Computed example of a mutant assay.
Amino acid sequence: MLQTDFGQMDGSVSAMYGIAYSVAPRLAVHDLTHNIPPYDIFAASYRLYQTVRFWPEGTVFVSVVDPGVSNDQQPIAVQTMDNKFIVTPDNGTITHLAHYQGLRAVRQIQTPTSKALAAFNEEHTFRGRDLYTYIGAALASGQLPFADLGPLTTPDELVQLALAPVTTGQNEVTGAVDITDPRFGSVWTNIPVTAFNTLGVKTGDTVKVSIAYHDQLRYQNTMRYTRSFASVVVGEPLVYVNSLLNLGVAINQASFADLYHIEAGIDWVVTMNPAAPQRFPGA
């Protein structure tokens, strides 16, 4: 499973496929995404968190979002608690998995000698092809056991990105915008439905949503908490539970993020409060 910020306008991803099939011709190679915004390690970390849990045991993910394109960046391989593997630079890509799901083991990869890596001796900017894809394919095909990749290290020694806290208070829950949906423009927060449920809000109730950036209010409105987008008319905002069981904010058939210029990150703070106890039919 490959994830990069390369896009698919040139042959970079195809070259990675070629290395994988050269290592193991019968290997099943799939794409997680190659549309991570350039250099966005946080988004890469989030997309792994969004995806890894749903693949079978033993699946190997290769994630290459490496802004420095640095030969000094320590390559690592991690084993998750549910026995999936990720091969990636130690630059924060593992942050969400480590925080929300936990890691069973972490190894620092020692570069093997291989024809597939011959270019690595002179070429230092395409480690996604020459190193990470090779290691991932060798690991997935059983040619290179996880135990042989290199020395063990501990999860707390990995580079970690900052994650926003979720806090609950009297009639209030606060978190941050973790990511925005790149296609439909929904805003995905890090507020879990379990925290939101402490507010006592029921399906069909109204919620006051406030979004601030660096303590400056950027958006505030009341909207319905619904089970589906179809519960509101086209163009109406809503609060809903997304596929990761966190709270999302959206507009039915429009981009909430684009319309209100909302971005992701720990500085985009989202606060939700119960509004007046108004109920709507069909929510």
Rank of each mutant, 00 (worst) to 15 (best):
D10E: 12
M1R: 10
Y21M: 06
R104H: 13
T93I: 09
P182E: 10
Q143Y: 14
Y17E: 03
I41M: 04
V207E: 10
A147R: 15
M16L: 09
T206E: 07
V62Y: 05
V166L: 10
H34F: 12
V65C: 04
L2E: 02
D258T: 11
D5P: 01
P89T: 01
P165F: 13
Q50Y: 15
Y134L: 11
Q73V: 03
V69W: 06
T95G: 01
S70A: 14
T125R: 13
G150M: 11
V209R: 02
Q170F: 12
Y132W: 07
N273S: 14
Y213S: 03
I76C: 00
E157M: 14
Q74C: 00
P25K: 14
A140E: 05
A264G: 02
M272C: 11
P192W: 12
L2S: 06
A20R: 11
L244M: 13
T88H: 05
A140V: 00
T206G: 04
Y17R: 15
R183P: 00
V234H: 06
L131S: 03
Q8M: 09
L103T: 06
R129F: 09
P192F: 13
T93S: 07
N190E: 08
V269Y: 09
T174P: 03
A105I: 00
N197G: 06
I19M: 07
E263M: 08
H214W: 05
V62Q: 07
T59F: 14
P165R: 13
T189G: 03
A254V: 03
L259G: 04
A254T: 02
T4F: 02
R218A: 11
A276W: 09
A264K: 08
A24P: 01
L238F: 15
V209A: 14
V187N: 06
N252C: 08
R26P: 00
R218H: 12
N71C: 03
T167S: 14
F126L: 11
L244S: 12
A28I: 04
T33P: 07
T154W: 08
R218K: 14
G204S: 10
Q143H: 13
N35P: 00
A162P: 00
G169I: 05
R279S: 11
K84Q: 15
H99A: 09
G150L: 03
Q110N: 10
P237S: 13
M81T: 15
L199M: 06
